[in-house]
Design a protein around this nucleic acid. Structure first.
Lengths: 131, 131
DNA sequence: CCTAGTGTACTATAATAGATAGTACACTGT
DNA sequence: ACAGTGTACTATCTATTATAGTACACTAGG
């Protein structure tokens, strides 16, 4: 599934949150897919069950997964949810920061434009494939 | 200059690093500008001098500022430095993550495109002004 | 009903990071 | 000499992180 990097400055549960979120966003995990149980994932990653639980709780709070007591943890469906303008604004701000930094590092406008175009075409490709 | 948000989950020294970096990237602080001294900034922000020192050390490590013992801390000039392709690749990856997330949150391709175009035009405007 | 597997809650402990407090020293320019 | 600068160091406190262990309620399948 993924690995934990102990040298990473990010804490273990944060790495789990980010990795699972990544798998969901990229479509490796789809809605209603079952995630490994707390105990199982704690064995494969050799971390404490409580740490997994903390990560799953955070993911549930952010709306990426849901749990059914006694059954397990599953990827949440997000279709039909009202578009979260607040969250989108936050991401936009992060994008702005990153483009600013590219500019500061000496990237020309053309270079930045080509990078953004490439990212957009990646989304287009994905859109075509899923049809 | 800026404020520290104690409620923020980010640590104080990280907030200082991010804020100063922001001021440099956006051009509020220019090369060779003098930053507040460790003791001065610790007073205005009412945080410990050691915390300021930690932030400045990190900023120096990242190449944004430099210090002259006995004189003070200054914004580093970055022109003439070889373009750091590694750093650019990292930022590109962050941009990719963010666009993926926008897509996952239900943004249409047109919406994403308009956001990226807007960010690019902000860079163009800035470029024009500085001429 | 029993059992295995699931999420959940709780206490306790240890380790680490973050922040503060205080002191001291070397350097710079006036 | 002096004031202002960065720097280094120890010590202490707190919050976060991670681990360990236990316990309980729920679900599905014999």
């Amino acid at each position: 599934m993924f690995q934990i990097d102990l040298k990473n400055r990010k804490s273990i549960y944060e790495q789990i949150v980010d990795n699972v979120k990544e798998l969901i966003i990229t479509g490796v995990l789809n809605a209603e897919d079952k995630l490994p149980s707390v105990r199982e994932l704690s064995k494969t990653l050799t971390v404490n069950p409580n740490t997994i639980q903390k990560a799953y709780r955070e993911l549930e709070y952010q709306g990426y997964i849901y749990t059914v007591s006694g059954l397990g943890t599953f990827v949440a469906a997000h279709t039909g949810l009202p578009i979260d303008d607040n969250k989108i604004a936050q991401i936009k701000e992060r994008l702005r920061e990153n483009t600013r930094e590219l500019f500061y590092l000496g990237c020309s406008l053309e270079k930045i434009k080509s990078i953004l175009d490439e990212l957009l075409s990646e989304r287009s490709d994905w859109n075509d494939k899923s049809k």
